[in-house]
Design a protein around this nucleic acid. Structure first.
Lengths: 130, 130
DNA sequence: CGGCATCCAATTGGATACTG
DNA sequence: CAGTATCCAATTGGATGCCG
């Protein structure tokens, strides 16, 4: 006979919740993934060189690795144009686009609770638009 | 004279957004932090041994490190009772409690989009993952 | 009971140079 | 233009043992 039925229920809930949370964090928690995802969210579509030039603090290898992971996780798509010079475009997939409210949620909490945060009106504008 | 005013605005927005997102992820993105946070969210208050016994897959050192980080980031509080044997209780701070909607958001997206996810009440399958 | 110290393995991050 | 390859540093994760 099992005691603590309600505790077991609580346990199942937290296991489910923490699993889902960890899964999401695994996908978007990479060092540069938020920046990549936000750029693609706001720009819609970007070439590799655009991404690279807009993120000067990340080395090419790391950027490629992050892009490959996002691609394997089906969050972004990579389209190669077979021309010379080469042209590769990245954009969010449907799954990636579905992350929008999640990213928005994370951004808002972080912006609200980050010390020494920027208090200007840009953040509110951002919150409205997203 | 600056060209591309809209592009600059876009740039500011994404910087703000990705900064806030990265900040939040830095706080909750630790390997075991989702589990800890969810436990404290659902249980309200837990002793160290409770946490440890409920998370058999994490070593003590790592668990302590994660708890220390959460404490330094003001997400959880650590209360020591000066008695013998020692007694230490962990609970969420107000800031930690404010993460609830964020964690819910992450959990829901992960649960909805995780492949091979548990669709019904299979507690056995879940037990394996913890 | 609730840790900390030590030591080690694994993963991740990164600078640089080179290529089809 | 859009990457690879190589090599190396840093961070993280973890098992074990000891302590007040």
């Amino acid at each position: 006979m099992r005691k603590e039925t309600s505790t077991n229920l609580e346990n199942e809930k937290l296991i489910l919740a923490s699993c889902g949370t960890s899964y999401t964090l695994d996908l978007i928690g990479g060092r540069w993934k938020p920046q990549i995802l936000w750029r693609l969210l706001l720009q819609g579509c970007m070439r590799y060189s655009q991404l690279k030039n807009s993120m000067p603090n990340v080395s090419e290898r790391i950027l490629i690795l992050q892009l490959r992971e996002l691609e394997q996780d089906m969050l972004i798509s990579r389209q190669v144009y077979p021309e010379v010079p080469p042209k590769v475009e990245y954009r969010l997939t449907e799954l990636g686009l579905s992350l929008k409210p999640v990213l928005c949620c994370l951004s808002q909490w972080g912006d609200a609770n980050r010390p020494n945060r920027v208090v200007s009106s840009d953040s509110e504008v951002l919150s409205e638009e997203l």
